[in-house]
C-alpha cells in the first residue's frame, strides 16, 4: 500500500486546505481571479470564518479584497467585476448571510446572461458554509433549496477535500455564476477554528492538476438493495448508515448528489433502475427541500422502476435550535437513515 501511494504522489488534505490550494492555483494560473469577502487577507486574522483563505494575501496582496460588512454590496461588486472580465470568488462567512445578498445573486448574477440575450458573461464563484453546528438559528441553516430553483445559477455541494479542490477549480473556470456550498463540520478547520462535532472529510489530493465536473453526482458505495442519496454532511451519515446496514445483509448504494443544480439524473437513474428503492437524506427542513425536487424528478423519470415510493429523511420544519439535544433531534442521523431504509425494504 505504501508503495502505491508514493507512486501516486498524494497528500492528505482537509477541505479547508484543499480549497485554499485550489484558490491559490487558480490565482496563479489566471490574473483575473481574485477573492472578495469579509475578514480575509487580514495579517494575524483567520482567513475568512473557517481558515480557507488563510495567508493567501502574502502571495496575492492585490487580489485578496477584504470588504466592509456589506454582503449586498460586495456580492453586487463581484457580479459587476465578473461582467467586466474578472473572475471573482466571493464568500460569505455563514450561508445565512447569503440572504443579505439575495438581490444581487438572484436578480443580477443569475439573470444577466438571459436578459442580455446571451451577450454578457458572469464568471462568478460564490462560497457559503452551511449546517447546524451549535450556533442557534441564524448561523446554521441549510438553504441550498433557495438557490437550486433559480435558473441561471449552478449549485454544487462539496463533501470531501478531493471534490472541494476539483469543483472549486471547475467553478472558477466556468463562465457562469456557480454557488458552492460547504459544511462547517467537514472543513477540518484547526486550532481555534476547529468544530467539536467535526467529521473527517480529508482526501488524498494528487500533486497533478485536476478538476471535478460541475454536473456529475458521485457514486460513493455500490449496493443492490436501496439507493441512498445525500450531500455534504448527509453523504457521510449515509455512508455510515450503509456500513451498519451491510452487517444486516442490506447492501445500500450511496450517491453523493454533489451537483444540486443541475441534477445528474443519469448517475441517479442508473442506480434507481438497479435498486428500485430510494431514500433521500437532507439536512434542511423537510418541506420545500432539494429532496422534494429529487423525489419528484426521480418519480417522473424512473417511476416505472420504483418498487416503493421514494422516502425522505430530513430535518424538522422548525428553525435550527440551539440546545444540543434539540439540535440532535432536529437533524437526520445515521440511525434515522437506517430506520428509513428498513421501513422501505419491509414494504
Amino acid at each position: 500500500m505504501a508503495e502505491v501511494s508514493t507512486t501516486l504522489a498524494t497528500r492528505r488534505l482537509t477541505i479547508a486546505e484543499a480549497l485554499r490550494e485550489a484558490i491559490a492555483e487558480e490565482m496563479r494560473r489566471d490574473p483575473c481571479v481574485f477573492c472578495i469577502g469579509e475578514d480575509i487577507a487580514i495579517p494575524g486574522g483567520w482567513g475568512g470564518a473557517f481558515t480557507v483563505t488563510l495567508d493567501l494575501e502574502n502571495e496575492f496582496p492585490d487580489r485578496m479584497l477584504n470588504t466592509p460588512i456589506a454582503e449586498l454590496g460586495f456580492f453586487g461588486a463581484a457580479v459587476g467585476a465578473a461582467m467586466m472580465g474578472m473572475r471573482p470568488i466571493a464568500d460569505v462567512q455563514y450561508g445565512d448571510f447569503l440572504f443579505l445578498a439575495m438581490d444581487q445573486i438572484v436578480n443580477n448574477a443569475a439573470k444577466m446572461r438571459y436578459m442580455s440575450g446571451g451577450t454578457v458573461k458572469v464568471p462568478l464563484v460564490m462560497r457559503a458554509p452551511i449546517g447546524a453546528t451549535g450556533r442557534g438559528s441564524q448561523h446554521a441553516q441549510s438553504m441550498e433549496r433557495c438557490f437550486t430553483g433559480v435558473p441561471g445559477l449552478k449549485v454544487v455541494a462539496v463533501s470531501n477535500a478531493y471534490d472541494a479542490k476539483g469543483l472549486l477549480k471547475a467553478a472558477v473556470r466556468d463562465d457562469n455564476p456557480v454557488l458552492i456550498f460547504e459544511h462547517k463540520l467537514l472543513y477540518g478547520s484547526k486550532g481555534a477554528r476547529a468544530e467539536s462535532q467535526a467529521v473527517d472529510a480529508t482526501s488524498d489530493i494528487p500533486e497533478n492538476e485536476y478538476v471535478v465536473p460541475l454536473d456529475k453526482a458521485a457514486l460513493r458505495r455500490s449496493g443492490s438493495h436501496v439507493t441512498i442519496l445525500g450531500w455534504l454532511l448527509m453523504s457521510h451519515y449515509a455512508m455510515s448508515a450503509a456500513e451498519s446496514l451491510a452487517a444486516e445483509g442490506i447492501e445500500a448504494e450511496v450517491i453523493d448528489v454533489r451537483s444540486l443544480s443541475p441534477i445528474d439524473y443519469n448517475t441517479i437513474g442508473t442506480s434507481v433502475e438497479k435498486t428500485g428503492r430510494v431514500v433521500i437524506v437532507e439536512e434542511g427542513p423537510r418541506t420545500g427541500g432539494v429532496s422534494a425536487e429529487l423525489a419528484a424528478g426521480i418519480t417522473e423519470r424512473f417511476g416505472e422502476y420504483l418498487l416503493a415510493p421514494v422516502s425522505r429523511v430530513a430535518s424538522a420544519d422548525v428553525p435550527v435550535p440551539f440546545s444540543p439535544p434539540l439540535e440532535d433531534a432536529y437533524r437526520p442521523t445515521s440511525q434515522r437513515i437506517i430506520a428509513a431504509v428498513q421501513k422501505l425494504l419491509s414494504r
Binding site: 449586498l72 456580492f75 461588486a77 457580479v79 459587476g80 472580465g85 474578472m86 451577450t119 454578457v120
Partner: peptide, 29 residues
C-alpha cells in the same frame, strides 16, 4: 454590452453595487 451598456437593472438601487464592481474591474485591470 458592445456599446458600453449592460442590461438595465429594474430593481431600484440594484445597479449601484454592480457599478462599483465594474469600476473595480477597470482598476484591477
Amino acid at each position: 454590452y458592445d456599446k458600453g451598456m449592460i442590461p438595465a437593472i429594474a430593481i431600484v438601487g440594484g445597479g449601484i453595487p454592480l457599478a462599483a464592481g465594474m469600476a473595480l474591474a477597470f482598476k484591477m485591470q
